[in-house]
Design a protein around this nucleic acid. Structure first.
Lengths: 125, 125
DNA sequence: AGGCCATTTATAAAAATTTTCACATGAATA
DNA sequence: TATTCATGTGAAAATTTTTATAAATGGCCT
């Protein structure tokens, strides 16, 4: 969407004020194409990272497999809470899962994480 | 904190189960040093980015100055809501502000944004 | 094999946080 | 001084996080 178009959508008084201002200070070109969209998937990824526990899990599991009870201890949190966050991360394909006996081990899916981060840079810059 | 230490903190039954499992499958080394901490500032940055409106603002204002009413139009949101999010972004030092007459123009602080993103990569990898 | 035990997941409700809205105030111009 | 753009404040709405409890899964023992 062009700035010009946005300007047209303002009410008359606002439009006049802004036009006048832009004419005098030339801070913004009317022909600029304005881009605001970020993919929902990306926003979702960022949202997942924005929780300290989930971010801690991702960091901790980047280098090793760990089972739920040890993850919970390391983060000093309730096991069911950790389990909940693990599911969230798994749903985003950010974790690998492996069963050993009655325990389940998790490890960060580094490829996927890298993919998200590079998409973030691309979309944001 | 070492895995060994975490293991000791489990209750006896849990510890036995995990020890047994680790002994047989060797999926995790007891001497591993586990690191879980991410800086609060970084988490905060990610949280700020995790809102679609704020992310949209950052993207839109990377290349140009825009006033609040045009930002609101571009994102199709109430002006007061945009103002609120702008303040959040300003508090994180992610925006430059400039006044022209009665209008206020904003632009992304690209250096700061880059700094955050590179810290994110460093801390996460 | 059948029944128990411990780990983990699932579900639902409570608590906390975030987002949005509504209205009052502040700032700048005419 | 009146008008308009933008901010500040506080409350309502929505979402997320946490807690509590129940259920499922898989191994172990007799």
């Amino acid at each position: 969407m062009k700035v010009k178009k946005l300007l047209e959508e303002l009410n008359e008084k606002q439009r006049k004020t802004v036009q006048k201002c832009l004419a005098s200070c030339e801070i913004l070109d009317l022909e600029e194409e304005v881009e605001t969209e970020l993919s929902l998937e990306l926003i979702n990824f960022v949202k997942v990272l924005s929780n300290p526990i989930r971010a801690g899990i991702i960091k901790m599991l980047k280098k090793r497999w760990m089972c739920v009870c040890l993850i919970a201890k390391a983060l000093n949190q309730d096991q069911t809470l950790i389990s909940h966050h693990l599911r969230t991360l798994k749903n985003m394909n950010l974790l690998h899962e492996r069963r050993e006996g009655k325990l389940r081990f998790y490890k960060t899916n580094t490829e996927e994480l890298k993919k998200y981060l590079s998409t973030l840079e691309t979309e944001l810059f």
